[in-house]
Design a protein around this nucleic acid. Sequence first.
DNA 1: CATGAATGAGTATTCATTCAT
DNA 2: GATGAATGAATACTCATTCAT
Lengths: 190, 190, 190, 190
Amino acid sequence: MSGTQERPLRADAARNRARLLDVATEVFTTRGVGVPTEEIARAAGVGVGTLFRHFPTKEALLEAVMVRRLEAIAARTADLAAASEPAEAFFGCFRLVIEQSAGKNEFTQALAAAGVDAHAALQESSQAIRAQLADLLARAQQVGAVRAELGLPELVALLVGTGAMMELLGADPAARERIFEVVFDGLRPH
Amino acid sequence: MSGTQERPLRADAARNRARLLDVATEVFTTRGVGVPTEEIARAAGVGVGTLFRHFPTKEALLEAVMVRRLEAIAARTADLAAASEPAEAFFGCFRLVIEQSAGKNEFTQALAAAGVDAHAALQESSQAIRAQLADLLARAQQVGAVRAELGLPELVALLVGTGAMMELLGADPAARERIFEVVFDGLRPH
Amino acid sequence: MSGTQERPLRADAARNRARLLDVATEVFTTRGVGVPTEEIARAAGVGVGTLFRHFPTKEALLEAVMVRRLEAIAARTADLAAASEPAEAFFGCFRLVIEQSAGKNEFTQALAAAGVDAHAALQESSQAIRAQLADLLARAQQVGAVRAELGLPELVALLVGTGAMMELLGADPAARERIFEVVFDGLRPH
Amino acid sequence: MSGTQERPLRADAARNRARLLDVATEVFTTRGVGVPTEEIARAAGVGVGTLFRHFPTKEALLEAVMVRRLEAIAARTADLAAASEPAEAFFGCFRLVIEQSAGKNEFTQALAAAGVDAHAALQESSQAIRAQLADLLARAQQVGAVRAELGLPELVALLVGTGAMMELLGADPAARERIFEVVFDGLRPH
DNA sequence: CATGAATGAGTATTCATTCAT
DNA sequence: GATGAATGAATACTCATTCAT
């Protein structure tokens, strides 16, 4: 309903594209990336042909899904970072990223893949997050809220790893909180 | 009445079985579980038929690989636990488990799956490790070396998650050490 | 609310489906059901994928072949039964069924299997024939043209068995006729 | 215990061969010819190697099974033929053959195959039966107990076909008897 | 532009047969 | 001779991708 910057598509084409992304996100997140493309198309109410017109490859679809998630995170992170003082911003964003990575470990894998793989599109949008994370980290370190010796790679690893922990624990909120305590206390200078 | 009761296989059969396990471990951990069975057989220098004689299913092969890794870990963990005082034993074993989980995240997934899935064989051998971990944890908590509020599920999650972190960081030893510091400091009472 | 309700397939799709059925009928009846699916697809001029799109299973294809044969027989039997007096109708239909069962003993096996097996589709279309046969038998018995003590199971068995005899004899028309004389004379009251 | 004319084998080898034949007969008859050779070997208490030493091919084993059945039938038929007057001998042997063909339609198929196929061994032993049948038929025809126009091919077809009928009817003795009445009455001159 | 039918390479698994022990 | 481990061709079925309608 707002102005995400896709190149101008016909109204219905844009709607199809959006629906496909929504459905794919849902499906990939809940059932993994092994789900047949045809099933995604059907769930989105379009034919396979349409899916492949919008995303020339299954991998391209996966990438688009990840990009969207990364961008969503980047946007929220930016808001949070702007509105809080460094320590609060850092730990708040850490939580945010973890919370958003719910469902399979698609997202965390995306982050991971982005740091390793050469997928152009992912590279681009993950760079945005990485820059933000680097900034948040630096500022939190300046105010002494986070160990000074940590770099961006370690932060990314900690995010991905903590996401994995949460997946294992499932919905138990108390256990999740205990994990946050361990990780956050560990992040602070000793 | 317990112990390992392998049926005496012919010399060559045993060799093939072992080679298959070695190759499968290597291949699964470096390239994931999607690798064709035929390729594994070829890499082991046997025909597919032989592979399927030893492991009636691809899944069975995967299971066997995991069991072997779990058992190896359990053995080393037991040694370490016996030879050290509680705190040292706990943190030493934590490191050990992480170090052994090298390669993709097969092992960590194994631990994860074992807690959730119903694969009998895995269940059995992962129970052994879980018991040991529970014991190590309890003793470390008794001497005040680890936060009292943590339970076995959190410990397992922390192991799996830390393993994921290490995979992301690759071989950089300094960075790995910084992660250990974060996690270990976080584990200690605050 | 009954009748044939095929979904309107695209022209080419319908052609492919029909060709597959024709080829499969031919191949199964002449060379048995062991023929590879791929060969059937090739003979029909389509890829395996197409075959499996139309018939999700080899068994499903076999079933479809049988259903078509059963329906064809049922239709012709109905015509014949309507147009003749009881004795003529009965023996005419007997001949008809045998003549239609040419080629291996697929059809007879179909009849046999249908009485035993639980394949829904087969059940349905073989029920139609069985009902007709029961009716023909009853009427022929009422006019004293057929032994009164015979039931439907025996009639089906006689059909299947006579079909088997014809297969053995091959194309020799005189020999076939002699078999019909034996069976038909045997069927009449003594 | 008696003198079947196998070439002199070592005692244990002969025992193995006999056991394999027994087991194979049972298994093929009850579960069809699709049963893996290995299973037959196991059921006979020997290794596959042994099976293949005695029967160089699965087909060879099947052939041997059939030959034995044919020979058994031939022997009993000969006895029966010798001890009775023509009509009784003919119909008695007809029943005998049908009764012996119990279980799948292995045997009838064997007879069929023998009349068509070129398997040397089968040819030989089925010739024996065919000769006997021809003889029984001729003598029954001479005394006017069977239609004069029937030849050996029709008789074989009738045997095979009647066997198929019995398989369909299963164990219902009354129904089986009604079939015999139809066929036997049909065989008699009209 | 949308559709969904067609394609065919790819994959796990079976089984008759061979051969080292 | 007997054993059973090894072999690998064969087979049903899947799924990303293309293209005629």
